[in-house]
Simulated scan of single mutants.
Amino acid sequence: MTPLVTENPCHFQKTGRTVLQIVREGLQQLDQYINEDFTHACKIIYHCRGKVVVMGIGKSGHIGKKIASTFASTGTPSFFVHPAEANHGDLGMVGANDIVIAISNSGEALEILTLIPVLKRRHIILICITSRPESTMACAAKIHICVKVPKEACPLGLAPTSSTTATLVMGDALAIALLNARGFTQEDFALSHPGGALGHKVLLRVEDIMHTGNDIPCIQPDASLSQALLHMTSKKMGVIVICSIEGLIKGIFTDGDLRRILNLNINIDVQNMRIDSVMTQFGIRARPGTLVVDAVNMMKSKNITCIMISINDQLLGLVHIHDILRASIT
């Protein structure tokens, strides 16, 4: 093996740029393969009553796993099966209503070729993605999608580079074409990604994180300012909601309101001053079904740290900015 040459970093950059150029040229060739075969494949997958089973060996297998994952997260139920394992029992995972997408650059992957007679006998539709329309797999498939590229970026012409990128892009093209056909929405996407940031933003609602019942700092309008401050301090939220005995919102008082009162330099009788005389009437509210991300935007626009959750004037809960941060919504 030739020793690593480090004297001239520009050689690395030149090679890297050459690879990018070769791959770009390969992808430009793909446009001709978005044709009737591509449309036919999309229609069959769209009407599939089962799942899309993706197979591939070696580098094609790695690409196949990503394609199956993309299908699954964009509204097309899909999973990957290794063809070697399929030859030893895992083919039983493929149901009668499923479709198989088999990937092989040469179209001659032995592990897949041995499965084709069984798939045909079971009347399972086979879609093959190869770079050779004349290959055994292409000829055996109901639909063949070509991903032929002029050359690999590997100077030896051996390591799959341009060809695997082209296959990956074609898989993305299929997935997104189907996504559009299904009218797949952002919320649909979030349902497949409940643990991610998008899932939180799209699915989480204020009713999921709000304080309720005795956790809400709440006091009646005739309470003194002193009583309100003690209760507000005990809840450690920097806010107290003023409600009637029936739980109807009359107003809100925050630590910011207290600072403004103190800055007026007037004598304040905290023991006798009623809280309803210094509260902010009504206050900013959201309905329980409000998305947390929308509540965040509302709080930012109003420059507040808490928002009341209510239906009409009935207090249901309270959400503090710290609750939102804990839920990882920013």
Rank of each mutant, 00 (worst) to 15 (best):
I261D: 02
C128V: 09
E85D: 15
V270G: 00
A286P: 00
G196V: 06
T130F: 05
A190C: 08
D269Y: 06
V19P: 02
S131D: 02
Q271R: 14
T114W: 08
S73C: 12
I324D: 00
K235V: 02
A102D: 02
H320I: 10
L27S: 04
M55F: 07
I127S: 01
V81M: 07
L158D: 08
Q28I: 09
L178C: 09
H11C: 08
I245L: 08
S310T: 14
P9Y: 14
H88F: 11
S78E: 08
C146A: 07
R24A: 13
A166I: 08
N105Y: 07
T15Q: 14
N303K: 15
R274I: 05
V169R: 03
T233V: 11
P133I: 10
C139G: 14
M237H: 09
C10Q: 15
F189H: 05
T74M: 05
S226R: 13
L179K: 10
I116H: 03
Q227K: 15
C139P: 00
L91N: 03
L110V: 07
I176M: 14
P117K: 09
D90C: 08
N272G: 06
T76D: 07
N312A: 13
K142T: 03
A228Q: 05
A153R: 03
R49I: 07
D294K: 14
